[in-house]
Amino acid sequence: MKIGCHISVAKGLEKAVQQAVLLGAESFQVFTKNPRGLKPKKVNQVDADNGVSLLQKHDITLVCHTPYITNMSTPKEDLQEVTIRSIVEDLHIAEAYGAIGAVVHCGKHVGEGEEYGTKRMVETLDLILEQYDGPVKLLLENTAGQGTELGLTIKSLMEIRNATKFPEKIGFCFDTCHAFAAGQWNLDSFDQLIEEMKSTGYLDSLVCIHYNDSKAPFDSHKDRHEKIGKGEIGSEALAKFLTCPDLQHLPVVLETPVDDEKEYAEEIKYLHELRQG
């Protein structure tokens, strides 16, 4: 298990890897581009190559995250086209960075209904993945269920993946806060969660974990991250992910709220302590 955090890539991938080393991160996540925009981004290939070399030197695993504002279930043709272009580009950027996957948020049906939204999301995924044949997997992230978000449950995520033409190109990113807020797990139901991951085949395609406590209560459907042990989930429940034998092969990435990335160094140490018991 490689424990790490989200790090800014504003100064380039090489600087981001150097920051990861300083923080004691064994894995980390970066945005492919501005998380609040879809403006195309040109990769600095020299920086990318230097960054990848550093990743390999320090045996650090990288995960990329696509912008928040894409919507793979949008009923609007122009927005679907922009979403497809942006995510295809994100996959190529993630490949240049040596990432194992590119996390994407599930679609929002924006009032059109779950059945329409799911069908539209599958269609959009097919249009994206027919344009990308590289090694990077597109990772569907479970949601808290705010508004009209899709992808709250393990079952629905597997149904979406299996309905596409390219299930082998799709993996998953499990967010502890989102699943708690969606009413999918808590301290008492952790074992059932892992059993469902196994029985559905979800675990076989799980690529990374977003590791966050929750400001909002269980089943609140509110996406509000909190530092580990400071929120509604608590350290006892979250520690189960760190000690679970079935999850030891995965990178675990903190996305907890910090004023400065340096704060992650202490939190990473805390996770190692939790893992030791």
Results as ranks from 00 to 15, higher is better:
E226V: 01
Q248V: 05
I233F: 05
L238R: 08
D259W: 04
T256P: 13
A237V: 01
P245D: 04
V253M: 14
E267I: 07
E266R: 11
A237R: 03
E226T: 03
L247H: 14
P257F: 07
A265H: 15
P257I: 01
P245W: 08
R224S: 13
G229V: 01
F241K: 09
K227M: 11
V253W: 02
D260C: 03
V252T: 04
Y264Q: 10
C244I: 01
H249L: 10
A265N: 06
G231E: 01
E263C: 09
H225P: 08
V258P: 09
H225A: 08
E267F: 12
R224I: 15
L242D: 03
L254K: 08
L242P: 08
E232Y: 03
P245C: 08
T256E: 13
L247V: 02
P257V: 01
H225R: 00
R224N: 12
G234Q: 09
L254M: 08
I233P: 06
E255W: 01
E267Q: 14
S235E: 14
A239P: 05
S235L: 12
D246H: 14
H225N: 10
Q248K: 15
E255H: 01
E226Y: 04
L250S: 05
H249Y: 11
R224L: 15
A265Q: 14
V258W: 11
G229T: 04
H225C: 06
F241L: 11
R224D: 11
H225L: 13
D259Q: 12
L250M: 04
H249Q: 13
A265G: 10
K240P: 06
C244Y: 05
P251V: 02
A237L: 05
H249R: 14
A239C: 04
G229D: 10
C244M: 08
V252F: 12
Y264K: 08
P251T: 00
L247R: 12
G234D: 13
V253S: 12
T256K: 05
E232W: 01
E267H: 13
G229S: 10
E263M: 13
H249E: 14
E266C: 00
K240W: 03
V253G: 05
T256C: 13
E267R: 02
K240T: 03
L254R: 06
T243S: 15
V253F: 06
Y264I: 01
D246M: 05
E236H: 06
G234K: 04
D260W: 01
E232S: 02
L250T: 05
E226H: 06
